[in-house]
Simulated assay, not measured.
Amino acid sequence: MQYALKEKPDVKWWEQSAASGTLEVRHAPVRPEVALLVLPDGPEMSQRGAWPWHLNVLRMRPVLRAVSCVVSLEEALLGHVHYRSRGWNQGAVVDDVLRALNDLDRLTGRTRTVLVGHGMGARAALQAAVHPQVCGVVGLAPWLPDHESVVQLAGRGVFLAQSATSATGVARAREYTLRARTAGAWADVQLLRGGDAWMLRHSAAWHRAAAAGVRRVLAADGQGAKA
Rank of each mutant, 00 (worst) to 15 (best):
A122K: 05
V71C: 13
D221N: 11
R59T: 12
C135A: 15
R99D: 15
R106A: 15
W53G: 02
R216T: 13
G195L: 12
V114R: 03
A154M: 07
V93N: 11
Q16A: 13
W51V: 15
A19M: 11
A209T: 02
P43F: 09
A225E: 03
R86F: 07
R181H: 07
L73A: 08
N102A: 12
V30E: 14
G42A: 12
D96Y: 01
Q127R: 15
A125V: 03
V170Y: 01
V71F: 01
T168L: 10
V34F: 08
D41Q: 13
G117K: 06
G91C: 09
S68C: 05
L78K: 11
L160D: 09
L107A: 06
L192H: 06
G169C: 02
P32L: 09
P40V: 03
E7Q: 10
A219H: 13
T182Y: 04
L191D: 01
T22I: 05
V137G: 06
L23I: 13
G157P: 07
R193P: 01
A205T: 09
A209V: 02
V158H: 11
H207T: 00
K226E: 11
T168S: 14
P62E: 02
W143M: 04
V97F: 04
A125C: 09
V137M: 10
K226R: 15
P145T: 14
V114T: 04
V11Y: 10
L37D: 00
V67E: 02
R123G: 06
R31Q: 07
